[in-house]
Simulated assay, not measured.
Amino acid sequence: MSTIKHFISESVKKAQIDEFLQKELENAGYGGVEITRTPLGTHVVIYAMRPGVVIGRGGESIRQLAKTLEEKFGLPNPQISVAEIEVPELNAYIVASRIAAALRRGVHFRRAGFWALNRIMEAGALGAEIIISGKLRTERARYEKFRAGYLPKSGEPAMKYMRKAEVHVQLKPGIFGVKVRIMPPDAEFPDKIKILETIKKAPSETVETAETVEAKAEETEEKREAEG
């Protein structure tokens, strides 16, 4: 197998695993997965809002999940660890899932979009963009975009720091798509300049030692004797 085909097959497998975990761990607040090959097997990190649901009672659920990943997707010796998501509003997949759930409950798409955008920015994000597409108001499909803050679309910061997610939801008019892009607060930009303030040093105070005090006292006595 050539290198290009190898990377394509690995990317397809990761997308299939991600889609499988989305359905299996929906109640756990699934927020993404990282898969890393190691000499001893495969290290799988699952991000979730409720890690206890992923692990299960006595670790039964996570063992069954590891067995499924090995048999169904061919991951050699998968070692699964679960990481808790501390700020769900900065996780693109969780935000997209919440918008999809709101649309499924009948919430207007604009209300759901602006609500999610405000929550993201209040959590400290530098920028965010939400795109809801589908048959929003008419029989013809269109999209609505909600955007706030600073959100570059290209360059190293966009490739390195941008968090992306896409979720589809089946509604009565048809399938709606929800795309979320978030620029986290810890992102660094090459055009961001830091101005350092100069610190003024306080004038050094002369500290009198015991020897200095004695020398001054002797000089004072000598002056008095000379005057007397």
Rank of each mutant, 00 (worst) to 15 (best):
T209H: 01
W115Y: 04
I8M: 10
P51W: 02
S81F: 08
E156K: 15
T3A: 06
S97Y: 05
E208S: 05
R50Q: 10
I80K: 06
I199Y: 09
F114M: 08
I17D: 04
Q79C: 03
L136R: 01
M183F: 03
A112C: 05
I62D: 00
R119G: 07
Q22Y: 06
R147T: 09
I132Y: 03
A102Q: 15
Q16N: 13
V45E: 09
K160R: 02
P51M: 00
A102G: 12
F176I: 12
E26D: 08
S2V: 12
A158R: 00
S2K: 12
R181L: 05
K23I: 15
G124A: 15
I4C: 11
R140P: 15
T3V: 06
G134E: 00
I199Q: 13
E10I: 11
E70I: 15
G174T: 01
S61D: 04
A123R: 06
V178K: 05
I85H: 00
I175S: 15
I182Q: 13
A83C: 12
E70M: 03
D191G: 05
Y150M: 04
F176L: 02
V178Y: 09
L196S: 08
E26C: 03
L117S: 06
L171T: 05
I62P: 00
F73W: 04
R147M: 12
A215V: 15
H168R: 14
L75N: 01
V87S: 10
S11I: 05
I131F: 01
A15E: 13
K192Q: 05
V169S: 02
A123V: 07
V87R: 13
E34V: 14
F176H: 02
P203Y: 10
L103W: 02
G41Y: 00
M121I: 00
I131A: 09
V169W: 00
I17L: 02
E122R: 11
P78I: 09
K223S: 07
H6L: 15
V12N: 06
Q16Y: 06
T138G: 13
L21G: 08
G58V: 00
R224S: 07
E19F: 09
A100Q: 01
E19L: 08
A187G: 01
R163M: 12
M49Y: 00
E144D: 11
T38H: 01
K14C: 04
Y93A: 08
E166W: 07
K216G: 00
G155P: 01
H168K: 12
P76G: 02
A210V: 09
G29D: 01
V87P: 08
I130V: 02
R98K: 15
H43C: 07
E197K: 05
R119W: 12
K172E: 07
V178F: 09
K67A: 01
L136Y: 02
L136M: 03
T220Y: 10
